[in-house]
Design a protein around this nucleic acid. Structure first.
Lengths: 171, 171
DNA sequence: CTCAAATACTTGGATACCCAACTATTGAAG
DNA sequence: CTTCAATAGTTGGGTATCCAAGTATTTGAG
């Protein structure tokens, strides 16, 4: 899932380094895309590590935090597992797993769908609602409010990634 | 590790949606950072899925592909496991795991370090070298050459992410 | 020189995620 | 209506990643 303890910085940008190698191997036309993909992976790992470090003391992982927030923002605090998977872009089996654990710690409850007996709803418990709020306040203070980038760059990043996601059929 | 089969697009941008909720809960000051983090996670998942889909038929995962490429670009095609972990930003245990599997499929060999007996080197085999090249050509053609973004945006993305990574101590 | 601290790697335990396969329901075609 | 395809969830199997702890070796302090 995450983290990385906190290694020492490299003396050079590994993405730049890889780009040079790509060019040297006659792959120059793909070098820029490779750089984008590699940057994305590394940046995601770094951010995920920061997020998980904040959530760990609260007994949460990012995956479970996302489920909690989705429920918190849903009208009645409950959703079919299938909707959760769609929204979070994860496999149904991953939802089963996350809800299992949230249920085991009393943050969520499974309840039957009123009309469709195939469907199971995940419903926030009061403890789940409270923890979701507390976790968000911690994340806001320690990560989201300090993205490690100037505000302009943050907006640019969000916009470019939105373009990419739209093109990939995320929404 | 990855993928997602290929769900139907959502009828709205979930990141935008979350931003509205953040504002509505009095967390407006952290909304932009939240959007950046969430976008990054989703975009990474999408790209990783594309990459893994290309590598799967070759019997590789992205983690192992990265190890192979690192070795390919190193002078003699061999590196201490510790260097691999530093470069790829992963825990030593993850390197052990990846090298175990690469070794089991004959793509890499463990050899003792000539002077430091604590250290183990991972060395590319001819098969490993060949597969690394073939996998790169597949990735170049199917992913890196079509990042799903205009060239300008790709460059912007790489630059912004480099700024973020530098600030986070990636290099 | 000796011994404690640092470094390198592995192992065991845990979480997350995917896929394939399977059960249960619902829905739609005939 | 009956039947078969589609939908919802779960289970079992596999990979990746992390952390904590343990072994081996090297390095540095005194």
């Amino acid at each position: 899932m995450t983290s990385m303890s906190s290694r020492a910085p490299l003396p050079f940008d590994p993405v730049e380094e890889a780009r040079r190698h790509w060019a040297g191997h006659g792959w120059a036309d793909a070098a820029e895309g490779m750089a984008a993909v590699t940057s994305l992976m590394r940046a995601q790992a770094i951010v995920l590590a920061r997020v998980e470090a904040v959530l760990r003391p609260l007994g949460l992982t990012f995956a479970r935090y996302e489920v909690l927030m989705l429920l918190l923002f849903s009208g009645r605090g409950s959703l079919p597992l299938s909707r959760i998977g769609e929204r979070l872009q994860v496999h149904p089996a991953s939802v089963t797993n996350a809800v299992d654990r949230l249920e085991a710690t009393g943050l969520v409850e499974r309840t039957p769908h009123p009309t469709d007996r195939r469907t199971t709803l995940a419903a926030l418990t009061p403890a789940g609602r409270e923890l979701a709020t507390k976790a968000t306040e911690a994340l806001n203070a320690e990560v989201f409010a300090r993205p490690g980038l100037p505000a302009d760059d943050v907006r640019t990043l969000v916009d470019v990634l939105a373009t990419m996601r739209r093109g990939a059929g995320d929404f």
